[in-house]
Design a protein around this nucleic acid. Structure first.
Ligand code: MN
Ligand code: MN
Ligand code: ZN
Ligand code: ZN
Lengths: 129, 129
DNA sequence: ATTTTATTGCGAATAAGTTGCAATAATATA
DNA sequence: TATATTATTGCAACTTATTCGCAATAAAAT
C-alpha cells in the first residue's frame, strides 16, 4: 500500500494545515477551490488518519472532524490526546493545548481519547456582551 | 408540557437503572421485553435528557448512548461531567467516577462535556492474558 | 514505453436519528 | 363516572453522514 502524491491529497492537507479549526468533510469540500468527490475526501482523510498525519474528532452532533496533528511547536513529538472545544455559537471545533489526563480504574487500558467540551468560545462570548 | 406515566417510559427507565452500561437505542430495543417503536424510544430518551434524568454520550462510532444520571450514591447531588470508557473488546460504554476538570483558555465558557476514553476494560484485559 | 496498482468519481447502499400525522390513552375536569 | 384535553405512540417517510463496489484514471516503478 504505497502512498502516491495527488493534487487531491495536497489540497486537503494544505487546507487542514492552514485552518485553525478542525474541519468536517463538507467544510473541506466547500473551502476547496478544486472540486473533489465526497467519498474521495473521506478516503483521503482516513488515510491521513492511518498515517498519523491527522486525527479525527467526533462531536456530539455525531459528525467527524479532522485536524492536523502537532500543529505549531515541535512537529517531531508524538501527538498526545488533548481536549477539543466546540463553540455552539460559531460552530467551530478547535484543538485545545490541554492534555487529557485521566486516571482510569485498575486494569483498564486507554488507547485513545475523544474529548469535546461544548460552550462559547472567547470571540463569541465577547461579542455577546 | 406535562409529563405522563406510560409503560414505555417505565420500561426504558428500569432498563437504564438496572444497567451498568450506557445503552444505545437499539440495545434498549433488544433488551426490552415489550416491543417499542424506534422513534418512541428516542423520544422517551430525549425527554429524559431534557428532564435531567438521563445523560447522553456520543461515542467515536457517532452513536448516541444513554445513561442514568447519579446512579448509586446520593441521588440528590447535581450530576457533574465525567469521563466515559468504551471497551473496544466487549463494546460497552460505562460512566467513570472521574470528573472532567479541564482549564480552558481565558474567555471560554464550558457548558457541557462529552469525553470518551477508548481501550480495553478490566474484564477484557484479564481475559486476553 | 509499458506495467502495476493506488487513487478517483460515480452511484448505490447503510445506518442513525428525526419528523409529520393520525390513532391511542393518560390525566384533568365537569 | 363521563367527557374533554393533549401528551404519547406507531408507522412510514425523510434527512444526513459515511461507506462501498466498480470501472476509469493516473502516479510511480520497471
Ligand atoms: Mn485535536
Ligand atoms: Mn455518564
Ligand atoms: Zn465561537
Ligand atoms: Zn470490555
Amino acid at each position: 500500500m504505497n502512498r502516491r502524491n495527488t493534487p487531491t491529497k495536497e489540497a486537503v492537507l494544505n487546507l487542514l494545515m492552514n485552518s485553525r479549526n478542525a474541519l468536517s468533510q463538507d467544510a473541506i469540500e466547500r473551502q476547496l477551490d478544486i472540486e473533489i468527490n465526497r467519498a474521495t475526501i473521506y478516503r483521503v482523510l482516513n488515510r491521513f488518519c492511518e498515517d498519523g498525519i491527522v486525527h479525527k474528532i467526533v462531536a456530539e452532533d455525531g459528525k467527524q472532524y479532522f485536524a492536523i496533528c502537532k500543529k505549531c511547536e515541535n512537529p517531531q513529538e508524538v501527538i498526545q490526546p488533548h481536549f477539543h472545544f466546540r463553540c455552539l455559537s460559531c460552530d467551530t471545533i478547535e484543538c485545545l493545548q490541554v492534555p487529557v489526563e485521566c486516571s482510569v480504574p485498575n486494569g483498564y487500558e486507554v488507547q485513545n481519547a475523544n474529548c469535546v467540551l461544548t460552550g462559547t468560545c472567547n470571540n463569541c462570548s465577547l461579542l455577546s456582551t
